[in-house]
Design a binder for these strands. Structure first.
Lengths: 209, 209
DNA sequence: GTATGTTTCAAACAGTTGTTTGGAATTGAT
DNA sequence: ATCAATTCCAAACAACTGTTTGAAACATAC
């Protein structure tokens, strides 16, 4: 059993990294199994198919993330409307993100990049899978914002949340490359945590606009 | 010559649509040539390779877009610092976008989706190609913001521009799918133009924060 | 030690990919 | 009408894809 687990998780480790780097279609099972130092057939043996492997990669991430996020939302849901400031709501999203990074190096970037790629899969199984399984936290989030900012219409909140998601996925998912540009043009280097901190006032101001 | 042009542009039309829908790797030349009703070999004859075809698709879009954008930037660059409000700067970006849509249906979504996919290509030729060829407008944009908001540091401006780009690419590129969700959950339907209008105050507030 | 179930592995499978080829069809100029 | 250049096209190419197979290696229990 221990040998199996190491094979499965070695595959997951290699897969999530490669998927984030190159994309799903651009990553072959042979590339994954070579990097994971396991036999090619073991992916189909342990996961069934490449599609299922992709979902398994997401599952591992989303389990950790949504568990923490759900906890944050629960405490927020017991607050009075006046206490629900945008900054506080944003932190409920950011705290679980940051704790991802404490478990594994670079986890935020990988996770955001995977999300971005899943989102880009327009025709795909993945998009449905992610939204079906984890769309309810978005709904809870929407309700919280509605409660804190009752002057905004529900569509305004809906769309602003998506502007926000776009900012986060885009900048955090590509942060290495962006940091390279930033470093080249402005001779400064920011870590992912710094970028997130910079992001909060920007997003909060937008949500309150 | 006229036959050739029609073949070339038929390929470009089919390719840009399919690339935006499914992605570059997920779209085969056979799918493209079938939809374009041309022979398979004509892609390699007219464009050389699939990579070059992808670049050609971008070129056609970016030529129209950057020409208009550059014009907008020029008029802004002759204004006084106090006149450079965030809303005005945003409109300089949005106007060329909207005029894309007047030429071809759905052009904004397609363009944004292509940009998103190019951006996701981390290892790739495309990323370099786009940033190399059109990165200077980003620099001009940064300078304008710096002039209008001198209290912000250069890194703050740099990152906020990227938050902004993320919002735009994410929401406009996926707007059909998002609109579906919006329609299902809130029974409202917004066109791309409406989403953009909704976006301006959000982004402007963030930039000024 | 034998038997049972699980996991690994090399090899092969059928299908798809981008690209190349050499000849046919078409074009435009003289 | 003749010639040269351009464009088209069916067919084939080698390389790569995800998946399956059946036997070998391993582990676990009696």
């Amino acid at each position: 059993m221990t040998k199996t687990e190491s094979t499965k998780s070695r595959i997951l480790d290699a897969a999530e990294q490669l998927f984030a780097e190159r994309g799903f279609a651009e990553t072959s099972l042979r590339t994954i199994t070579t990097r994971a130092r396991v036999n090619l057939a073991s992916v189909n043996y342990h996961f069934g198919s490449k599609k299922s492997l992709i979902q398994a990669v997401f599952d591992r991430f989303l389990q950790d993330f949504t568990k923490e996020l759900s906890l944050e939302l629960m405490t927020l849901e017991q607050l009075e409307p006046v206490q629900l400031e945008a900054e506080k709501l944003l932190n409920a999203l950011i705290k679980p993100l940051l704790s991802l990074n404490s478990r594994r190096d670079n986890a935020i970037s990988i996770f955001m990049r995977l999300l971005g790629r899943a989102y880009a899969e327009t025709q795909g199984h993945l998009r449905r899978y992610v939204t079906d399984k984890y769309g309810h936290v978005l709904v809870r989030f929407t309700h919280l914002f509605q409660k804190g900012y009752p002057s905004l219409t529900i569509d305004q909140i809906f769309w602003r949340l998506h502007y926000m998601l776009g900012s986060m996925i885009f900048t955090l998912g590509g942060s290495e490359a962006l940091r390279q540009i930033s470093q080249a043009d402005f001779n400064r280097d920011l870590g992912v945590e710094d970028v997130i901190k910079e992001m909060v006032p920007f997003l909060a101001a937008g949500m309150k606009a």
